[in-house]
Design a protein around this nucleic acid. Structure first.
Length: 300
DNA sequence: CTCGATCCCTGGACGC
DNA sequence: TGCGTCCAGGGATCGA
């Protein structure tokens, strides 16, 4: 489940592996998660990858302007463009030798000028790929919130304490903060001793400041350990991350809290499994969060 | 504004 | 072994 640290890890790996490489040709598999598949086939070949950036959970592969020997390219690629990639739940983007058989669920193959292929595989296809020129890209990125690693104390407090939504929902909301997902939301709330169902507006200034600080510490540490590999996250070198060993809340239902030994519980908050210590992270008064609707099925 | 429900998708876990 | 069922979750969307 690639969140900010995992995406940052992949982006760093790609920078080392494919920067400056030219895309020779593109082969597509299933394309229902690609904005405009034809645009990839038309506009990627001939361009080189000039930069790899991360924006929240997105990666941005900056493409060179094509200038094939003097004239304006026939396909109009004389303007800057980027390949926007979201890994969704199960997406992987990594180079492989072209001779190596493709993994199952490989949906995009970009042959590079050094005999490798940059391949995108994604079993569930919750990811997204889009070829975008400058203006559409800028519009695309407009709606996103602050970078959690950069956000100031004041801005963080404004974005959180000005809202009556649950803090868990706010942390997951990409228009509030870009890049935080379920794992790092739960980890930071545990470390800050804040219950996920608390309302943003009800956090004290001190709690908001603590939350911002621990969120940044956790994200930095997770990046240093190359992300969390829960089920199938692999970086651009095909290696798993290590941060899952440091999880204190996420996925630890029924295990004892590292601080107080109370058993970690799970509840659905903001529509997501949320793990917390019921003692360290006291529930807000009047909380109506059904701790786990049992085996709730579709209503009959 | 905020909420929950629903859908997308497949692999893996689990029950029988 | 093999089936059926449930579940995970980021994000879009829609109705309450």
């Amino acid at each position: 489940m690639p969140e900010l640290p995992e995406v940052e890890t992949v982006a760093r790996g790609l920078r080392r592996a494919i920067l400056g490489r030219r895309i020779v040709s593109v082969t597509l598999g299933k394309t229902d998660f690609i904005d405009d598949p034809v645009a990839l086939e038309q506009h990627l070949p001939g361009r080189s990858i000039e930069a790899v950036e991360r924006y929240g959970k997105f990666m941005l592969l900056r493409l060179s302007v094509v200038n094939g020997g003097g004239g304006v390219p026939a396909n109009g690629d004389a303007a800057p463009a980027s390949l926007l990639v979201h890994l969704g739940m199960t997406g992987q983007l990594a180079p492989s030798p072209a001779a190596q058989p493709c993994e199952k669920h490989t949906h995009v193959c970009m042959l590079l000028d050094d005999g490798r292929e940059l391949r995108y595989t994604d079993a569930r296809r919750f990811g997204r790929i889009a070829y975008l020129t400058e203006v559409p890209l800028a519009e695309e990125l407009l709606g996103f919130g602050a970078d959690p690693l950069e956000v100031s104390d004041v801005e963080f407090a404004q974005r959180i304490r000005g809202r009556r939504a649950r803090i868990k929902a706010l942390l997951l909301d990409q228009s509030v903060l870009r890049g935080v997902g379920n794992i790092y939301a739960d980890e930071s709330l545990w470390k800050a001793k804040i219950h996920p169902a608390r309302l943003g507006a009800n956090l004290s200034a001190k709690q908001a400041a603590t939350l911002r600080r621990v969120l940044q510490e956790i994200l930095q540490k997770a990046i240093a350990l190359r992300g969390s590999s829960i089920s199938d996250f692999l970086d651009a070198e095909g290696e798993p991350g290590e941060y899952q060993r440091h999880h204190r809340a996420y996925g630890r239902e029924g295990k004892s809290c590292y601080r107080c030994k109370t058993l970690i519980r799970r509840a659905i908050v903001a529509g997501r499994s949320s793990y917390f210590c019921p003692r360290c992270q006291p529930a807000p008064r009047g909380l109506k969060v059904l701790p786990m609707p049992g085996k709730k099925r579709k209503k009959s």
